[in-house]
Design a protein around this nucleic acid. Structure first.
Lengths: 196, 196
DNA sequence: CGATTTCTGTACCGATTAGTAAATAACTTT
DNA sequence: AAAGTTATTTACTAATCGGTACAGAAATCG
């Protein structure tokens, strides 16, 4: 054990609380009192442990994105590209039912439109969304190589389309759409999947 | 002409400037100095003329939504439901090219995730998005009645799907997607349109 | 003309923002 | 036990937030 007074709170639990606040209120909509109250710590502890508001957000985002990427990769790892995107869309619809998590996707809710201060955060989220789209594109490229997607298909167009649908689902979710509503959206979106 | 000192700025022009600020920065991301600077007026004039920040937003939103609804209704008024949604999606893709307007849709960008203060605004935007979805649903119902959509189709599911795609396109647009990128999305989305 | 009305500009308000200085408390190390 | 290290607490800072009081300016009304 390291020297000095041990911290009285759990790092991961506190970060998780912060994540949930940012997730539901967005970066700009979250105040430091919001954070300290949810995390159960006071301000200097927050600053000493996590840097500042922006760094705290980035740490929370990192945790969210790591978990998120893991699930994405697992979900995309299906025998066929169609099966992969099917599981992804329905997974998102069903995941929206979870009452423990805020609605929607942090990469969308976090900082979509914002003032100058939050611009770097906004851009970081754009990059992360791009990364997710790229993962999907690669899965579709594999699908073309595997022969389960027609070779004339544009993998990047298709990936952009499904990324778009998922972002839209995030909005629908915060707007009060039920998991069943979202399953309907997923079903429609799958009708766009290219077939020979 | 009414008594008293005439105002030195143009009401509509100032409101339009305010709209553009809210549109690009969101409700919470917009500060009063942002507004007064863009509108070319000082604070007391803003309050005397438009109420307060929230009322100003609502007035700007009203103007945006009126214009938006007009275009939506015009666009949906096509001979076939497919033609209507086709024109709507491509119109959105091409509209994103306009350098005068901020990227994305105000109904999405305005207040997606926010703190307590902005919650009423957020809810108002949810209602407006719902209204747009309803207009689309009605067009699809007409399409079913007209016989150009298979009668087994769920108009509400289909409307929710295309609303979802459009919201997603708004996000793609702020994320830097080009009109061409969005046209690709539109093309994919149209593949989901029900056929006999 | 004077009186009235309405807008503009400056200068302010209290509240809240993100961030910190300094004292104390709790631990390890020597 | 003393010294060194780190965390917690309270209290604070400067800046910004949304909103306003008040005085002067510019018009119409009588």
């Amino acid at each position: 054990m390291s020297a000095g007074r041990p911290r009285e709170f759990n790092f991961d639990a506190a970060l998780d609380r912060a994540l949930h606040v940012f997730w539901s209120k967005g970066y700009e909509g979250t105040s430091l009192p919001d954070l300290t109250e949810a995390m159960g710590i006071n301000r200097p502890s927050l600053y000493a442990t996590f840097g500042n508001k922006e760094e705290l957000f980035r740490k929370a985002l990192e945790r969210y994105a790591a978990e998120s990427k893991k699930r994405l990769d697992e979900t995309l790892d299906q025998p066929t590209a169609y099966g992969a995107i099917e599981k992804l869309l329905y997974g998102m619809a069903d995941g929206s039912a979870c009452p423990k998590s805020p609605k929607g996707c942090l990469l969308v809710q976090g900082a979509l439109a914002c003032g100058e201060d939050a611009q770097p955060i906004k851009e970081e989220l754009v990059r992360r969304r791009q990364a997710a789209e790229t993962a999907m594109r690669r899965r579709f490229e594999r699908g073309i190589a595997d022969g389960d997607i027609p070779p004339t298909t544009s993998a990047s167009d298709l990936a952009r389309f499904y990324a778009t649908v998922m972002h839209g689902m995030s909005i629908q979710s915060t707007g009060g759409a039920s998991p069943d509503d979202l399953r309907g959206v997923a079903q429609c979106a799958l009708m766009a999947f290219p077939r020979k």
